[in-house]
Structures are given as C-alpha cells and as structure tokens.
Write a protein that binds this DNA or RNA. Structure first.
Lengths: 210, 210, 210, 210
DNA sequence: AATGAATGAGGGTTCATTCAT
DNA sequence: TATGAATGAACCCTCATTCAT
C-alpha cells in the first residue's frame, strides 16, 4: 500500500532528522560553528556527507533547527503559563528562571548560532534568514508581563519593549560570558543574581529592600 | 636633513596604518570577521596583500588594533574620572552612558572580535589571547564603584563581581542585539533605559520611586 | 552484488594512490621536495588539488609513502634472509649489495625525504616524525650481523653500533653524491667497491688479500 | 686621490662581505637554509635587505661563499702537505682526521648547502652552479694518495676514483647523521672509528690486526 | 651606496557543495 | 535515496626580489 510506504518513509525521515539534530547539537557544543564540519556530522550519524543534504538545504539550516529544538521546551513552558491572568511579577520570575536555565544549557549553541548568522549576513543579503528568532515568542511574553505589571502598578512605569530588549540582552550576554569562559561563577548564583537585579529594578514597592 | 626624512617616513607609516585601520573597521563592520579577507583589505587600501603583513603580524592583530582604537576613547574617559572620590552613583551613570554609546557605535566590531577570539580559541589552545580584553579596565572601574556604592550604603549590598559581570553581560548582549539587527531602537533610548534599570536596581534608597 | 561494488571502489582507490605515488615519485625525483607542489602533483595525475587530500593527510605523508614503497623491496629481501643462522659475512655482503642497489635507484627520493624531514623539524618540534625511518629495520639487520661476525671471530672486534652507523653514513652519503650529480660512476662498480672496502675492513682473516 | 677612495671602498666592501658571511654562517647553522631569510640576515648585520643584494646576486651565492670560507682551512691544510713525497698512509690519516673535524664543525652548513643546491636544481637548469664543490681539491688529494699507496703496495689495489668517492660519501653521510641528530656518538669516537675502518680496509699488510 | 616598503606569485590546507553511480 | 569522491574557490601567510627615493 502506498500509504504505508509513505508513512514508513516519513518515520525514517523523522528519525534521520532527529539523529542529525542530536549529533549536530553535540558537535556544535563541542566544536563550535566552524569546527562542526559536514564531514564530521555525517560521520557521527553514520551516513554519508551527501545524504545530509537530503535533509538540510545547507549548513545553516542545521543550526537553525538545533536552535529551534533547543528552545522548544522553554517555549512550551511559557505557553503553558497563564500570562493574561497570573501575577506578572511571579510569572516574570518563573520565565526568567526558565530562560536562564535554558540559556545556560544552550550557551554553546547560541554562540554557534550567532556565528552562523554573522557569516551568513556577510555572504548573502539576509534572504530569508532573519526569521530565525526562536526566542521571539518568549520575548513577547516578557513584554506582555511588563505591560501588565506596569499597568497594575506593580512595576515602575518602564517601556516594555525597551525593558524586554534589555532582558534579552542580558540573556545573550550571559550566553557569551559562559561560552567565552570569561566568568567562572556557578550558573545558579549568576542567574538568581540577575533575576534579583531585574525584578528589584522593576519593583514598584517602596519597602522592597527593607 | 635625516630627521625630516624619518619624520616623513613615520608620517607615511602612520597614514598607512590609519588607512588600514579605517578600511579594516569598515570591512569588519560590513563583512564580519570571516568576510574580511586579507585580499579584500589590501584591495580596499590599494596595496598588495603582502604589504598588509608589513603592518600587522596576522589577521588577528588587525581586529585587536581596531578594537583597541575603537575603545580608546572610552578608556580615556573612564581614566579621567575621579573613581576614588566622586559619587559612585553619578560616576556609574556616566560610565554606563559612555559604555553604551561606545557599544552601540562598535557593535559590529565587537561581534567580529568575539568571532576572531572564538576561532582562535578553537584552533590554538589559548596561548596568550586572553590579554585581548580592552574593556577590562572599564570593568574594573565599574566593580570599584559598585564596591564603593555598597560600602557607602548607596547601593543595595550586591556582590560587586557578580553585578559587574551582569553589567558586562548586558554590554555584550547589547552589542549582539544591535549587530544581529534584531532590535532597531535608537541607541539613546536604549542606553538610558538600561542605565535606569541598573541604577534603580542598585539603588538603596527607599523613596527611590516615589 | 555489494561486494563487487566495494571491490571496484577499492580498485579505483588503489589505482588512484598508485597514480599519485608514481607521479609524486617522478616529481620528487625531478623537482625535489620544494619543487613538488600539491598543485603540480594534482595536475600531473589529472585531478584537482583538493582531491589529493583525500588520499594523503598532507604533503609529508606523500613522501613517506613514496619512501616506504621505494624501500619495501629491500626490507622484504632482508626479512627473507636467515640472519640468525647464515654466514655473517655472506649475508652482510648480500645486504650491502641490495642496499646499494636500492640507494642508487632511490637517491633522489631519499634526498627529498631528508629535505622534508629537515623542514619539518625546523617548523614543528619533532612531534612524531622520528618514526619515518624505513631503513631502520635494515640497519638493525646489519648491526646484528656485525655482532655475530665479531663474536664468531670473522670480523675484527668492531663496535657494532658505530660501525653500523658508519655504514649508514655511507648509504646516505652515496645517495647525496648521486643526487648532487657529483659522481657519474656506474652504480654496480660503485656498490661493489664500497662493499669490498667495508668487508675487507671488517675481515679478521690474515690471509685476506694473499 | 682616487686610489685612496677606491682602496677605502674595497676595505668597506671586504668588511661588509665578512660581516655577511659571519652572520650567514650563524643563521644557516641555527635556522637552516629555509629558515635563513634575507630579512633576518640583513637584520643581523645591521643593514637593510636591499643592501645585501649589492654584495650577493642572490641567496644561493651567500651559502656558496660560506661553504668556501668554511672549508678554506681544510684546503689550506691539505695544500701544506707533501702529497707527492710523504707516507701515503700517514698523510691519508691526517687528511681524514682533518676532514672529519671540519665535517663535524660544518655539518649544519653542509646540510644547508645541499638544500640550497637541490632547490636550485629544480628551479633552474644547473646554469653555473655545478662549480660549487669546495671539497673537490681535497678529494683530489685523497685520490692521489690512494694511487700512490696502491702503487707502493701499501694499499690493496683499489680503484682510487671509486674509493675516493666512497670516502666522500662517508663524509657527507656523517654530516647528515649529525645534523639530523640521528646519532648521539661523540664526534671523536665516530671519526676515529671511521678512519680505522677505512685505513684497515685499505691496508695491504697481512699482520694488520695481529 | 643604501634603503626598506612594496610586491605578488606561490605555498599548503580546508571544506561546503555537487553529482555520477 | 544514499553515496563519497571530486571539486575548486577561498583562505592565511611567506619571502626572494625589485626599485623609487
């Protein structure tokens, strides 16, 4: 039956992509963007180099996929929250925690993704690659909570877009710091320190630190 | 006169280095680290490839020079401040402003420098490359002000190392954001927003936002 | 049949390596180590430069391979001898003859190999290059025969290490002489002359030349 | 006076060549042929690179000069001997000793010279470079002594040309061995071992080793 | 005569991508 | 569909030689 065959094919395809993502993730973490060669990737998965091109148009598509997969959990978590109804400060705290955790876990991948993006930007003229922003959804959530918190008087009246961007900046900066090895601080301390700084900075209560 | 000849030569040399720095800066901004090739650089300046190597030992030295030049103004400014005696909050505010301004201006260069650093780190085993940290001096100043502010009761009792690192993270993250083109916000708004967030987050006064 | 395909591929690979070795050998003989460029080698074989690197890790590996192939026959011959049981003088004579013949045939290759070795030694710090000594086995055989001959009273009581080294020196020197073109003597006369000199020099019999 | 000026010029020229030879010799010994760059040589002497070309046509001419100077002492010594009248065996022994001593001292230079020669041979078609054989005179002396010794019945009736070449081969081979660092034998032991082997091999006396 | 900046051909090597099988 | 050998452009870097000053 044709349907069965197609299904089988789809399963194989899915498994192959899965394997490629797993291997790519590991390689990108260990070797970085430039160190991850198509040869090596194919070798790790146990297929031939040419076959990789049956699943990805080119090298860049791989890391985009890895990024998307690596941040999927975070996006699912954010989606599971009651952003419209819950306590903005509490939700923001949760999201920040999740973000930091994810950032720390994916710091190498993010570094690689940025490299890939930059190489690309110089070669081609940003064809359709600008779309690769897997954290956009999360940023939107943060922005929403900032709006709600400000309107509710819980936060100082900050500009939610700007402040959201600042928080995003901290995220990327953190990834950099860790990936560069500039900082040898336990991830937890760091994350909570950042979280405190941000939440305190936003807090509108006067007795915040009494 | 021999002196004249030497002076002339020095001028020519200076001009050449200047031209190379200008061209390198532009290329690095437009093409990124990998996109900036020695061939292209030579072509831009109108000299031959080999000649570039009369002025720089290798490719890395170019971006280090560009970085150093690009951040020189900031370092001079920080050095001109009375870090030991002035008001920690005010000084921090000034430094942050200067940092943000510089970061915005040099965002592409910083991105390229990070790329260069990463490539290097993967190729060779971190020989002496750790020295290339033109913002170290500035970071130290921030740290000092945090200590002084904390001790003076002006800032909440934060860990100066951690907080300094957070601020550094914001810097790098900002550079990334701009270089990625994710964010199209006027630099001034952004910078002041970040500055406010940080200073408010540090502020120990209870009536801060009344 | 899968086996057939694999076999065919292996044959093609073997042929390619064979072609490369042949071309490399010819180039090394005619052009020397520096004159043998990867571009030229590829051109000679009719493939692209990059393809050469599918068969050899780098340039050094090529000459090592050529050396090994060029001296294989000699090694096989030495291995076929009964070094432990046969007559030391006769065996030594046979080995010397074979060595001289091989040296004469491979004089240019040896010269190139020495050059490669020297360049390497000056660039990198003698990592693992000491292993490239395809005549080591032969030298050991000579040493063994010297020991046996001395113990049996057939040879004057010479130091086998020193004498073996002297013989090795003659080998390399001969290769040099021929490669420099200083000497245009038929290989056979030369070899037998050397052999006689050495064997006579070792001979312990008093009536040697009566 | 024009003569004085010319003389002065000649002195300067001589001194310059002297300095260049000294520096070249040291560099060639320490860095080898490829490692000795014109830049470095000029720097060592304290002149500019272009000036070097006022004294030597090209790089090759330098090492030829160095070779000639390095072997001058040996040639003078050989010339001082009474080759026609003295005892062939004794004279040969003296010459061999002097040769070995010189070879050991100049082993690096010789290695470099050979490299230079080989590179050349591949580039140009042996224009006039074959003349660079500073040991030719010495080889002739050896040959003469071999003839005389044979005729006098002191040596076995060897072919003087062949045997001389063998001895030359040993010389070059020795230089190689030492320069390659393959052999860690005190130079003196080695030299006397070689000398013994050769002289014993030539010796016609029957009671040689009684 | 001396300079040394400029040259530029060439070196070895890498690797994303293609395509015949 | 899978293969992996072949490609070849591009990369960074070297250095003997030239030539305007």
């Amino acid at each position: 039956m044709a349907g069965l065959k197609e299904k089988k094919k789809a399963v194989v395809e899915t498994m192959m992509r899965e394997s490629l993502f797993v291997a790519a993730r590991r390689l990108l973490e260990e070797e970085g963007w430039r160190g991850t060669t198509m040869d090596r990737l194919a070798q790790e998965v146990g297929i031939s180099k040419g076959t990789v091109y049956n699943y990805f148009r080119d090298k860049r598509e791989i890391i985009w996929g890895v990024m998307e997969r690596s941040t999927e959990e975070l996006r699912r978590f954010v989606r599971s929250l009651d952003l419209q109804g819950g306590d903005p400060a509490g939700l923001l705290s949760l999201i920040l925690e999740a973000i930091f955790e994810g950032l720390y876990r994916n710091r190498r991948i993010i570094a690689a993704a940025i490299q890939a993006h930059e190489e690309d930007a110089s070669l081609r003229d940003d064809r359709q690659h600008a779309r690769c922003d897997p954290l956009g959804e999360v940023r939107q959530a943060v922005r929403l909570l900032l709006v709600r918190g400000s309107e509710a008087g819980l936060f100082r009246p900050v500009d939610p877009v700007l402040t959201g961007a600042v928080i995003h900046a901290v995220l990327l900066g953190l990834a950099r710091q860790f990936s560069l090895g500039v900082l040898d601080v336990p991830s937890d301390d760091f994350a909570s320190s950042v979280k405190d700084l941000i939440l305190q900075g936003l807090d509108a209560r006067e007795d915040r630190n009494s």
